[in-house]
């Protein structure tokens, strides 16, 4: 009975029901997506100059580890993140600063004095004193920080996502 009145009434109710449900679904669904994605959408890039102390305290041609922490607010909690950088003073006035985070899978590399290489303990990645790749699975050399020297003090530019 395709044309009987009861069928068209049913079709009408189905249609209205679908429309109202779609409306309600959208009104809650879209905000809900934003709600779930919210922390991922927070993009607060911060740039700050971190003081590494007087340049003179770093020996020449000898990578020296400097560690510091940064506090960040995540939701309802403040999290302290540690950073480690290798300071390599190449001349009395010139300096390069490398991150100690391996470019492969973010393990921490350490300076091996005997081999005079940075070695990543996770997948045996080897980096030269200037951060260049010697061997291992890492895709690129060690990350390097922008530096500046002010009043004899060394600063690096830290970019946080």
């Amino acid at each position: 009975m395709p044309n009987s009145p009861s069928l068209t009434r049913r079709q009408f109710v189905t249609l209205v029901g679908a429309a109202l449900s779609a409306f309600m679904g959208t009104l809650v669904g879209l905000p809900a997506i934003g709600y779930l994605l919210s922390p991922a959408l927070e993009r607060r890039e911060r740039e700050s100059w971190i003081s590494l102390g007087p340049l003179d305290q770093y020996p020449l041609n000898q990578p020296t580890l400097f560690t510091f922490t940064r506090t960040k607010k995540h939701g309802w909690e403040k999290t302290v993140t540690s950073y480690g950088v290798y300071v390599l003073r190449t001349s009395p006035t010139q300096v390069r600063v490398f991150s100690n985070v391996c470019t492969h899978l973010s393990c921490r590399v350490r300076w091996d004095e005997e081999a005079r290489e940075y070695i990543c303990p996770c997948h045996d990645g080897h980096f030269a004193i200037d951060g260049a790749i010697i061997s291992g699975p890492q895709p690129r050399p060690l990350d390097e920080y922008e530096t500046k020297i002010e009043g004899g003090n060394l600063f690096i530019l830290l970019r946080e996502a």
Binding site: Y35, L37, W76
Partner: peptide, 14 residues
Amino acid sequence: VQYIMNEVRFGWLI
């Protein structure tokens, strides 16, 4: 809860 209300997108609505 304060975080939901003030910082999460549409947290106040939910």
